[in-house]
């Protein structure tokens, strides 16, 4: 069985020292090893942004696509090969601005993949503009007087869109993050894990210390029932979304793949693409 070291490659990330994304990378590598994967059984599909580079830093199959489209690519990969573990990942701009449409629909569709968002409330790669996750009043290069739009609440949106697995974590809590990614991988359906992953270069407000001060960790909340959607929504609203842990999971709903009639568990990619003469004649018959 592969250890987490086997999920490392020799490419040095070009992230700034201290960037939250390092922990996300480490957590994915550990979680993959912990659930017993071999590197070739994992495909990491990422978007564009500082965060999007992550697929190049993990020893697994990886595709670094275009801005905002990691999710549809990842869903295509999963449909083609259900035997793979597929992780999609990217930034808050990638997933909640340009790619928001895909995010909501991937949630609804519930294909069995894990989506990890590195949420730094800013655009890192393009050097510090506002993101849909930036708080009102947040000053950036593109909002010098402070943002006048309200911040998006991705997890509330996810819950209302029929999400079956909603979690949130923090780059400083490698243990919780790793455990949640493992749970997400094991969840039979779409799992969304939003990670507070500070940008130390462009976001001087939502820092490691700021998160430590403001986060409520569900692991310390007694009696929280992650199967209760209303409670999950209430808790998110109570904490202004600054909540970490497994927020909601619905184990009842089947994945998209399980609901497609006749869709086999074995990789479609491994099946013979040819059709027989008899099958062909049957197909043609309706046009006679």
């Amino acid at each position: 069985m592969a250890t987490f070291k086997e999920f490392r490659n020799n490419i040095k990330p070009n992230w700034c020292p201290g960037c939250g994304d390092f922990s996300v990378q480490a957590a994915i590598q550990r979680a993959a090893a912990n659930v017993g994967l071999e590197p070739e059984q994992l495909a990491v599909i990422s978007g564009i942004g500082c965060s999007g580079r992550i697929s190049g830093y993990i020893n697994a199959y990886g595709l670094h696509g275009i801005h905002g489209r990691a999710l549809p690519i990842a869903q295509g990969v999963k449909l083609a090969n259900r035997e793979l573990t597929v992780i999609a990942s990217g930034g808050d701009g990638d997933g909640f601005a340009i790619g928001m449409g895909h995010t909501i629909h991937a949630i609804r569709r519930n294909i069995n993949i894990t989506y990890i968002v590195m949420d730094n409330q800013i655009y890192g790669l393009t050097k510090g503009q506002t993101s849909p996750r930036s708080a009102e009043g947040f000053k950036t290069k593109s909002t010098p007087e402070g943002s006048i739009e309200s911040a998006l609440s991705p997890l509330e949106l996810a819950l209302s869109s029929g999400a079956t697995f909603v979690a949130q974590s923090f780059s400083s809590d490698l243990k919780q993050l790793t455990a949640l990614i493992e749970e997400g991988i094991k969840h039979e359906g779409f799992s969304l894990i939003n990670v507070f992953s500070p940008c130390v270069t462009f976001n001087k407000v939502n820092t490691y210390d700021w998160f430590k001060e403001n986060i409520t960790n569900l692991d310390t909340v007694e009696g929280y029932d992650s199967s209760n959607r209303i409670q999950a929504m209430t808790k998110l609203m109570e904490t202004g979304g600054l909540l970490t842990g497994l927020i909601y999971q619905n184990k009842e709903r089947k994945s998209y793949e399980d609901l497609v009639p006749g869709f086999r568990k074995e990789a479609l990619a491994g099946q013979n693409p040819e059709i027989t003469a008899e099958q062909f004649n049957q197909l043609v018959a309706e046009f006679r």
Binding site: A43, R69, P72, I73, V77, L79, A80, H102, A269, G270
Partner: peptide
């Protein structure tokens, strides 16, 4: 899919994965 961007990128993902 939700739009044609998803349609083409999903197709790219599935082709990449061999179907």
């Amino acid at each position: 899919t939700e739009d044609e961007i998803a349609a083409i990128t999903m197709a790219i993902g599935a082709n990449y994965a061999g179907v």
